[in-house]
């Protein structure tokens, strides 16, 4: 059993989990939701083992680095963070149907990592710029943030679907009826954004400190840095609007979606379209 087989099992678990969560949304059967959660938990456990195994495999190859160094590894880590964050959210707030809006993201990330052309699954040696302990702190803080923002984006979509059903007077319609109340979704969006924002801030700060330790400059305005500050501002504005202008509901839901698009571009767009200090992320 090697790490890529385990990642395959993980993908399958996440896929089935998504199916069951969507089943919960459609059929409103609680048992279906429990199976969805169980599959997500099994998936995340298998993935944890697989990440540890890949780490160990890299040592066995004489390379020896945390599995956080290229597009494949970062996608896998992204889906791990997102699922873990979602399980925590479900445990804490009992908003089970949210899984139907979150788990598909993790399946997409895993599937893209495994099947897309040009994404190498090989464990390769670290380029000099990444040979530092800051790598782990920087990537983990950023990706916990990304994971939370993915969940917030899913919640935003959920809010808008529910809202449009409420506006049309179709609350009892099968899909919208199984969604939580608007007030609860709104609160969850806010909490998730706050959580993600703190981690993104920490991620940007660890990045700046690392840059200073490695190159003697905190900030070089490379595309990844610029886009991460744009993302930071989107979420900062969202929180600011809520705190000082009392924004809530649809406007915040839209901002959660816009914010996630910005995260998506910071993550993918920059890696594939713009070259800079973070270019190694594309291979």
């Amino acid at each position: 059993m090697n790490s890529s087989q385990l990642f395959g099992i993980t993908t399958l678990c996440y896929l089935l989990s998504s199916v069951f969560y969507i089943g919960l949304l459609v059929f409103k059967n609680k048992k279906v939701g429990t199976i969805g959660l169980a599959l997500a938990i099994i998936g995340v456990l298998v993935q944890t083992v697989a990440l540890g195994l890949r780490w160990q495999e890299s040592y066995a190859l004489g390379i020896g680095h945390a599995p956080l160094t290229n597009m494949y590894e970062s996608l896998v880590f992204f889906s791990w963070c997102t699922t873990l964050f979602y399980i925590f959210l479900e445990y804490k707030y009992k908003a089970r149907v949210v899984g139907a809006f979150v788990m598909p993201f993790t399946v997409a990330a895993m599937a893209y990592a495994s099947f897309a052309k040009g994404i190498s699954q090989q464990i390769s040696p670290l380029i000099p710029a990444l040979q530092s302990n800051w790598l782990i702190a920087h990537v983990i803080t950023c990706f916990i943030g990304y994971g939370a923002f993915a969940v917030a984006g899913g919640l935003g979509m959920m809010y808008l679907i529910k809202k449009s059903a409420v506006n049309k007077g179709k609350e009892q319609d099968s899909l919208a009826a199984s969604l939580p109340e608007l007030r609860i979704i709104d609160d969850l969006i806010h909490k998730t954004i706050v959580f993600g924002f703190m981690w993104l801030s920490a991620g940007i700060i660890t990045g700046a400190i690392w840059a200073n330790e490695a190159w003697g400059t905190y900030w070089s305005w490379d595309p990844k840095e610029t886009w991460s500050i744009i993302t930071w501002f989107v979420y900062a504005s969202t929180l600011h609007a809520r705190f000082t202008r009392g924004w809530s509901g649809s406007r915040i839901a839209w901002l959660a979606i816009i914010g996630f698009i910005s995260v998506f571009f910071t993550y993918f767009g920059v890696n594939f379209l713009l070259s800079g200090l973070h270019s190694y992320g594309a291979s």
Binding site: F197, M198, S201, A202, I205, A208, N212, G216, T217
Partner: peptide, 23 residues
Amino acid sequence: QVTKDPGVWFVYTGCGMMLLGLF
């Protein structure tokens, strides 16, 4: 690249305070 940056701890303290402030 050569730098003389005696204020680096002010910057790091500022970063820490920013996170604390967010909290």
